[in-house]
Amino acid sequence: MHISEGVLSPPVLVAGAALTAVGVAMGLKKMDNEKIPQVAVLTAAFFVASLIRVPVGPSAVHLVLNGLLGLVLGWAAFPAILVGLALQALLFQFGGLTTLGVNTFIMAMPAILCYYLFGRSITSKNTGMATAMAFSCGFLAILLSSLLLAISLIFTGESFVQAAKVLVLAHLPVMLLEGLIVALCLAFLTKVKPELLGVTHAAG
């Protein structure tokens, strides 16, 4: 999910940075004091998540958690993902500083979409319904990110259909895993801290 330096052309980089700037501004505007600790914790989770490589077969899965961030944070997912990616780029050399804007957009935009699509239905009284929605949220966030990634690679000479096919297929396990994780987190949160989900709605 992290595009390296020097892969994309300047127009794509600038477009990504501009879109991210708008998203971050929105996020900061909607972030009130009570929400900051939440954002901090989820940023930390996001930062660490892509390090946790669950070895499966000859390779490894790494989590993104953008669906979870979107669901809990709403627009604040933009600044959260930006900070997480910036630190990953600086400390781990994942992605790069010039591609920060594009990478943030690729992971944060689906988070926001999921927030609007599923934000309300996950608080449904019907547990089965809520779980299904949470799973779809985690699943869809990665799917959309893969597609956005494929789109941004069009201009590098990779054919979109080919790149999208490979990327979506490759991320299928991550989608399933993230769906499960979001569903589990939601079940946990509704039991332990339901106001976390409720409060976000009022704020967002």
Binding site: M1, F92, L169, A170, P173
Partner: peptide
Amino acid sequence: LVITTFLTLPSRVWAHK
């Protein structure tokens, strides 16, 4: 399902760098 998918795909796609 996750395991079988991982066994059949090239690794370059989901690495960070």
